[in-house]
Simulated assay, not measured.
Amino acid sequence: MNWSLLLLLVCSLMMIYMMVGMKRSHGSGSRSNQSMMDWTLLQDFNELKVENERLKIQLFNLSK
């Protein structure tokens, strides 16, 4: 049997196996990462709303 052909087949199968495994691991990680980013954006948005209300009150008090 030709060893170079066997080596070529083994390497190809290993590459396919590794690519599928990487896709699965990155897929699940990106979802949890996306959830964390959404949570961070929500917190930032709420902080900005509070800051906006505080500045509105200050502006109203200055205009009196």
Rank of each mutant, 00 (worst) to 15 (best):
S12P: 02
V20F: 01
C11Q: 10
I57M: 09
L55W: 03
K64T: 02
S28R: 07
S30T: 03
L6G: 02
R31D: 09
K49Y: 01
R24C: 01
V20D: 02
V50Q: 12
L42R: 09
V10K: 07
R24T: 04
W39K: 12
L62Q: 15
M1F: 02
L5G: 08
V50W: 08
M19V: 10
N2V: 03
N52D: 11
N46T: 00
S12Y: 04
S63P: 06
L7G: 00
N61C: 02
N52S: 14
G21S: 08
L55P: 01
L62F: 13
W39T: 06
K64C: 03
E47C: 00
V20L: 08
Q43A: 12
R54M: 01
R24K: 15
M22I: 13
W3F: 09
H26R: 15
D44H: 04
N61A: 12
S63Q: 15
G27R: 03
L6Q: 05
K56Y: 08
S35I: 14
D44R: 07
I57N: 11
L8V: 04
D44F: 01
Y17L: 10
S35H: 14
R24A: 14
I16S: 00
S32K: 14
K49P: 02
R31A: 05
G21C: 13
S32P: 01
S63W: 03
N61P: 00
M18P: 04
I16A: 00
K56V: 06
M19I: 07
W3R: 15
D44L: 13
K49G: 06
N61H: 02
S63L: 12
S30N: 14
S32Y: 07
Q34H: 15
S25K: 11
L59C: 12
F60H: 13
R54N: 07
F45W: 00
Q58A: 12
D44G: 02
L6R: 03
S32W: 07
V20W: 00
S63M: 09
L5Q: 07
G29H: 10
R31L: 11
T40E: 12
L7W: 10
V20I: 08
E53W: 12
G27I: 02
W39N: 03
D38V: 05
L55K: 01
S63Y: 13
Q34M: 14
D38H: 06
N52V: 12
N46F: 10
N61Y: 04
N33T: 06
K56T: 04
R24E: 10
N33W: 04
S32G: 10
L6K: 08
T40L: 15
R54D: 00
E51Q: 04
W39I: 02
L5H: 01
D44T: 05
W39D: 15
E53D: 13
S63A: 13
W39Q: 15
L7H: 07
S30D: 06
K23T: 11
L42Q: 12
S12C: 05
L8I: 02
N2I: 04
M37P: 00
L5I: 07
K23W: 11
M19C: 09
L6Y: 00
S30E: 09
L9H: 09
R31Q: 14
M15D: 07
H26T: 11
L55A: 12
K64L: 06
W3I: 12
H26K: 15
N61F: 04
F60S: 11
S12F: 03
L42S: 15
M19S: 08
